[in-house]
């Protein structure tokens, strides 16, 4: 075990830096630039039961220190992901991967998870109950503790793999949602998904995004994400994966001090495809400066 190693639900990661779902495709694009095996793992593009085109364009907008997206869960559907994407992914990444799952009904979550559960490459299931860009699913399960618990139970019933519930920040009480997931059997919690937001074009006087609203990500949301990781990690016993605006090694350390056992990197991958590698490479020097031998020592360290 190296000094950057962490454990996530019993599976060891060589480092705590995980590319977040929706910002890393199925990995191939990045494999042109670096050896994906340098990552502990990554979370692949959100998967639904049926193919989805997603939202109309424009789906992307600039924001101060960040961006908005309203992609709307474009993906080829779980059967094609298993038949076409996972075999290709296996050629460029040789460790367990996180399968990110979305749905529009509890049955859909369970159906997709049951199929991905049979895939050897899948180490964890990350259940997205937090997408702000689709109607009638996604975030609506993550804003109600009872619905979040229902999804968790339904997924746990169809898989033996660790289940991570990915939460939305678009709630007044994130702790109650996290606790409901934990009580329903969640093995880990990841947070935060994007923050519901919008932009208006002064020339057209209309919303920039065709979907009107989108999810804000990038450094702009980092302090908000950190606060929620802090709150949730105090309230649950299962591991917390922190994400939201992480773009440097020091952000990773802050997230872990707040209580995160591992950290995902999202929007930063889109503007710097080498972001995760730069962060991993910079971590040892930050630990040296702090006088920390192994990164696991700092998890929750800010709670005193």
């Amino acid at each position: 075990m190296g000094r950057l190693s962490v454990s996530l639900c019993g599976i060891e990661l060589t480092n705590p830096v995980i590319p977040a779902s929706g910002t890393f495709g199925y990995g191939y694009e990045f494999a042109e630039l670096f050896d994906l095996d340098r990552l502990g793992t990554f979370s692949f593009k959100g998967t639904t039961a049926l193919p989805r085109f997603g939202n109309p364009t424009p789906r992307i907008a600039e924001a101060p220190a960040g961006m908005l997206n309203a992609v709307g869960l474009q993906n080829p559907g779980v059967d094609k992901v298993i038949a076409e994407e996972l075999p290709k992914l296996k050629k460029v990444f040789h460790k367990p991967v996180i399968a990110n799952v979305s749905g529009f009904s509890i049955e859909e979550y369970a159906e997709v998870c049951a199929k991905l559960d049979k895939e050897e490459q899948v180490g964890w299931l990350e259940v997205n109950i937090s997408c702000p860009n689709v109607h009638g699913g996604g975030m609506s399960f993550g804003t109600d503790p009872r619905a979040a618990a229902e999804v968790t139970k339904a997924v746990k019933a169809v898989t033996t793999k660790p289940v991570i519930l990915k939460l939305t920040p678009n709630v007044s009480d994130i702790v109650s949602v996290a606790k409901a997931c934990e009580e329903a059997g969640a093995d880990a919690i990841s947070l935060i998904n994007t923050v519901l937001a919008m932009r208006i074009d002064l020339k057209t006087r209309r919303p920039v995004l065709a979907n009107t609203t989108g999810g804000l990500s990038g450094p702009a949301v980092f302090p908000l994400a950190l606060r929620m990781v802090w709150q949730v990690s105090q309230a649950v016993r299962v591991p917390v994966i922190g994400l939201g605006g992480v773009s440097g090694a020091e952000d990773v350390i802050e997230m872990m001090l707040a209580g995160a056992s591992a950290v995902q990197v999202g929007a930063a991958n889109l503007v710097d495809p080498l972001a995760c590698i730069r962060i991993i490479d910079a971590l040892p020097a930050v630990l040296d400066r702090m006088g920390v031998k192994n990164i696991t020592e700092i998890i929750g360290g800010a709670h005193g």
Partner: peptide, 15 residues
């Protein structure tokens, strides 16, 4: 197209 990443990762510019 209005793009996010420009290299195929984000699905922001799909047509």
């Amino acid at each position: 197209a209005r793009m996010g990443c420009g290299f195929g990762a984000c699905m922001g510019c799909t047509r």
